[in-house]
Design a binder for these strands. Structure first.
Length: 582
RNA sequence: GCUCUCGUAGUUCAACGGAUAGAAUGCUGGCCUGCGAAGCUGGCGAUCCAAGUUCGAUUCUUGGCGAGAGCACCA
């Protein structure tokens, strides 16, 4: 449609002998201003020294001659400072509803990324540490982007990268061994055991900072973890590793993520170190600026500022000979391309505190394997923060993903039991609604910014919320059920004269998906879904949908179908389930 | 100090250079003997400051002011 209108305008310009005018055709923000609109008159007025309104009138006159060619356009008007607005016809909307009903839940699928192989790494919680709401944030964003890319035709694999070795593990194990009565519980649920391991980690961290004796012991344990020389430590490690990883798995299941690859830091260390050592002192890329890695104060570093003044030096191998996170990241990158050699794009989702460091690593990769660097993309999101300040798992002032999910689920359950009708599988649906409340509160805003964590509003199921979307969907399903009972079939041809606002929004869904995919931004979908939910609820409030006496009832039912498909698919793209009842 | 991100109703967020800056929450009126009131419907309320580019700036540029993150052997 957009292209058709553009063509029409180009033709009109040609008739008026106006050349070289750049203009756009877009949806006006306010539906009052039509369904499409163009700024061509404003952009072109100066060129031919006239005022925009006059030019607009001239163009519209020409357009109206050609209008009959496009039956979907009902009216072309001039408004505001010289906008030309296109109002689409009743038939256009009826036709779009029919299209959605026929497409069903595949609505919005497109082939822009057909045959593209994309790996996306996200979540990245560390064994022996709590899974906190920051991980929830990375997971929500990563999973949603993965689904949006899938909807665009890409073959997506999901990867998770986890720190299975390092000081944090030693801190946790120290406390588990030091005070097993308090922390080392074995006869409880996996999640309970994991919670206590997380607590042991926080306590261990504190001891490490404040108790020199403990610090020495933890350092010792750290070495033994690497060398695997102590039976008791090995046993505790294996148990703790399994418990925390199992607990993560339970969470992924609840959140709706299935990973294809799990990468462990300990393995990346070796791979990365080899790469670094093989590139020490080498002349860098074609630009010939400096070397890749060089020695400095006994450490092996990468002086990235030599290549880009905005970057800085980072240590890759410490003076003790140990690989740092940067080196492991380097190894990880190579591993990803080894596991999936035909990868077209490798995406990493992390909090934005890692942005600068990722740039340095990417620069290093671009010098070592330029063919890989060009396929890497880092998406960084803001932090979950308290009004009081930063959350830190080291200090133990974290809200774990699990406790948040449970709290929200409990309050949802309470709401459900208050209602007059009962639902089977209440527990499960409450969990889906809780996931929705949390994910939506993360995905409704653009990914760059921080999220202020506020318990009250994060569990809200009213207004601008995930549960509101699910509720709207469940309501539509319930109406459709009633329609089926009364034997009124959906009929996209039985349309009334009135065009409902929800129709003017529904046909835009595929465009929204395209934009989300292009910009890796789920929030366009989230905001769009709120808009259509609002429009549908308003439609519901002002119309009796299932009504044998109404000739257009079949159309209203078709419209309800279309809405339910778009909502369900849209929620899926956000990683949210759409139960039929809630 | 340098780099990056960001300053929009009381609060939390939108607005791909466009029209009267949208929502939600909050406060405040009205709606369930007609399909799910987790809803609908009315009212109140905002672009950090200063220049510049543009027909047009919340958006782009520069400079202030303010917040956050990062900046060598942690991850």
């Amino acid at each position: 449609m957009q292209e058709k209108i553009k063509k029409l305008i180009k033709g009109a310009l040609k008739d008026l002998k106006i050349t070289d005018v750049e203009f756009i055709v877009e949806h006006p923000e306010d539906l009052k201003n039509g369904d499409y609109s163009t700024n061509v008159a404003m952009a072109g007025a100066k060129k031919i020294k006239t005022n925009p309104k006059e030019l607009a009138e001239k163009i519209v006159a020409k357009l109206q001659l050609a209008q009959s060619a496009i039956s979907e356009i009902k009216e072309i008007t001039v408004a505001g400072a010289g906008f030309i607005n296109f109002h689409l016809s009743r038939k256009f909307f009826a036709h779009s509803i029919e299209g959605i009903v026929n497409t069903g839940e595949n609505i919005g699928q497109n082939g822009t990324l057909k045959d593209q192989k994309i790996m996306i790494e996200f979540t990245d919680p560390n064994p022996f540490k709590p899974f906190h709401i920051g991980h929830l944030m990375t997971n929500a964003i990563g999973e949603s982007i993965a689904r949006i890319l899938e909807h665009s035709g890409a073959e997506v694999t999901r990867a998770n990268y986890q720190g299975d070795v390092g000081l944090h593990v030693a801190k946790a194990i120290y406390m588990l061994l030091e005070n097993p009565k308090e922390y080392l519980v074995r006869n409880e649920s996996t999640s309970r055991q994991a919670i206590f391991i997380g607590k042991a980690y926080a306590a261990g961290s504190e001891a490490y900072e404040n108790d020199p004796g403990a610090k020495a012991k933890i350092d010792e344990i750290n070495k033994k973890i690497y060398s695997k020389s102590d039976e008791q430590i090995n046993e505790t490690y294996d148990w703790g590793f399994k418990v925390t990883m199992d607990a993560f798995q339970d969470l992924y299941e609840m959140l709706g993520t299935e990973f294809d690859f799990y990468f462990l830091e300990s393995q990346m260390a070796l791979v990365g170190k080899d790469i670094v050592l093989a590139n020490v002192g080498k002349a860098a890329g074609p630009d010939g600026k400096g070397t890749i890695f060089e020695e400095s104060d006994g450490a092996i570093v990468f002086k990235a500022e030599k290549h880009d003044p905005k970057l800085h030096t980072r240590v890759f191998i410490t003076s003790q000979g140990l690989p740092t996170y940067e080196t492991k990241e380097l190894g990880l990158t190579e591993q990803k391309f080894e596991k999936a050699p035909d990868l077209d794009l490798s995406i990493i989702v992390t909090a934005n505190e890692q942005m600068d460091y990722m740039r340095v690593v990417t620069k290093a990769v671009s010098l070592i394997s330029p063919e890989h660097a060009s396929k890497m993309k880092h998406i960084s999101h803001g932090m979950m923060r308290f009004t009081a300040g930063k959350m830190s798992s080291r200090k133990g002032n974290v809200i774990t993903g699990e406790s948040l999910l449970n709290d929200v689920r409990d309050s949802i359950l309470e709401k459900m039991t208050d209602r007059e009708f009962s639902i089977v599988d209440q527990e499960k649906i409450a969990a889906d609604v809780a996931v929705s409340a949390i994910k939506y509160s993360i995905l409704k805003q653009s990914t760059g910014g921080d999220i202020i964590y506020d318990f009250e509003s994060s569990i809200s199921s009213e207004g601008d919320s995930g549960p509101y979307l699910q509720y709207s969907h469940a309501r539509a399903k319930s109406i459709l059920e009633k329609a089926a009972k009364e034997n009124i079939l959906p009929d996209p041809h039985a349309f009334p004269e009135e065009i409902f606002e929800v129709e003017k929004l529904l046909y835009k869904f595929p465009e929204i998906v395209l934009r989300s995919a292009k910009e890796y931004e789920p929030h366009y979908i989230a905001n769009y879904l709120i808009e259509i939910a609002r429009a549908f609820n308003s439609f519901y409030g002002n119309n009796l949908i299932v009504d044998k006496k109404d000739e257009s009832s079949g159309y209203k039912i078709a419209l309800t179908y279309a809405f339910s498909f778009v909502m369900k698919t849209g929620l899926h793209l956000l990683g949210i389930k759409a139960p039929d009842k809630m």
